[in-house]
């Protein structure tokens, strides 16, 4: 996990410094507990019992345990990309699929690997493979993303973000 001060003082990752094939710093979360899952359900008012009522999850729905929420996973990937881009880059887009279930006890490693780079209108676009790996190298959330990083000596990335035509 990262601290508030690490995010406050984070050094910019530049387009120039990312090589295709490079793995970017991962975010490790966990081990997950029923309390983490319940906190998410409460925060977004998702009362589906499979996420916090173990008897219901196991004996009614036949699941192995209470399950981590897909909506939580959906929020973690953009959060991770946001952290990678801070302070002046932009986590433009991400797509992913929901695969392996997350259950209490799992530790998650959110990861990204650069698969391509391109410069458009003075902005640095980096394509990534991304995911959320569980213990035993089980992939829970494989996907692809594009982040926009500043080029050393280049123009600032516009905010609100406006993608170049054809990007």
């Amino acid at each position: 996990m990262v601290s508030a001060d690490e995010l406050r003082f984070k050094a910019q990752l530049y387009y120039d410094d990312v090589s295709v094939g490079a793995e970017l710093p991962p975010l490790v979360i966990g081990p997950m507990t029923p309390t983490h899952l319940f906190r998410w359900s409460a925060a977004i008012e998702n009362w589906h019992r499979i996420h916090y009522d173990q008897n219901f999850a196991v004996y009614h729905d036949g699941l192995p345990n209470i399950l981590g929420q897909g909506s939580w996973k959906q929020s973690i990937l953009p959060r991770y990309l946001k952290d990678l881009c801070l302070p002046d880059g932009w986590p433009w887009k991400v797509s992913f699929q929901h695969r392996a279930m997350i259950v209490p006890g799992d530790t998650l490693t959110v990861w990204a690997k650069a698969t391509g780079k391109s410069e458009k209108e003075g902005l640095g676009f980096v394509d990534l493979d991304v995911g959320m790996r569980l213990d035993g190298d089980v992939e829970s959330c494989p996907g692809k993303a594009t982040i926009v990083l500043p080029i050393r000596g280049g123009r600032p990335i516009p905010y609100p973000f406006v993608p170049p035509k054809g990007a």
Binding site: V2, S3, R39, A43, R79, P87
Partner: peptide, 25 residues
């Protein structure tokens, strides 16, 4: 606050007014 705690994101851009004012946002 509830949401950012639930995604375990302590980013001061979400809660520190003085710091956030100086960011690009």
């Amino acid at each position: 606050r509830l949401f950012t705690n639930a995604i375990m994101d302590p980013d001061p851009r979400y809660w520190d007014e003085e710091f956030a004012r100086k960011t690009r946002f």
